[in-house]
Amino acid sequence: MSASTIEITFFGRGGQGAVTAAQIIAQAAIRRGLFASSFPEYGAERRGAPVRAYVRLSREPVLAREPIERPDISVVFDTRLLSVFNIPQITKSYIVINALSVDDVRKSVGKFSGRVIYVNAYEISTKHLGKPIVNTTMLGALLKVLDLVDIETVKELVLETFGKKLGKSNVDALEEAYKVAEVVVL
């Protein structure tokens, strides 16, 4: 892997939209003229089953076509996935996490050498969408630490992906998360 490639893994559960979130980030990067690739880990397409979706972003063509072993950024949709995939051990720089509170983050992450970005995505997505589908909310939190892709392009793609009405409430959730996501000192 060339040093200029940023590797992101989305850890979610079937039905939470991790695959769609990864697609949106890759599409946004491609629209900004960057190179990107995104693919999900297949084999567990069941509601509630752990799901991984990978994104590579780069200023050069992306050669690697293999699962990401050590992501620069892990986007975690559910704290209970942390131990399933050893996320604090494998993540290099940032864990972007959906949790109930700062205490919940501290308790569930434990030891981690990078930085943690916390957002209560259950609350935000339920408020805007009426149900806890957290993918677009988590994109808002991710954008706090990802400067290769800008929020306007991501919003554009969210609108295109979900259509006008549903897209608008997803954009609202994304914007709120972008505003309130915070760094947690462990």
Partner: peptide
């Protein structure tokens, strides 16, 4: 081409 690793990978 590769099933999944290409058929389902988004790229430019």
């Amino acid at each position: 081409y590769d099933g999944f690793l290409m058929s389902h990978t988004t790229e430019p």
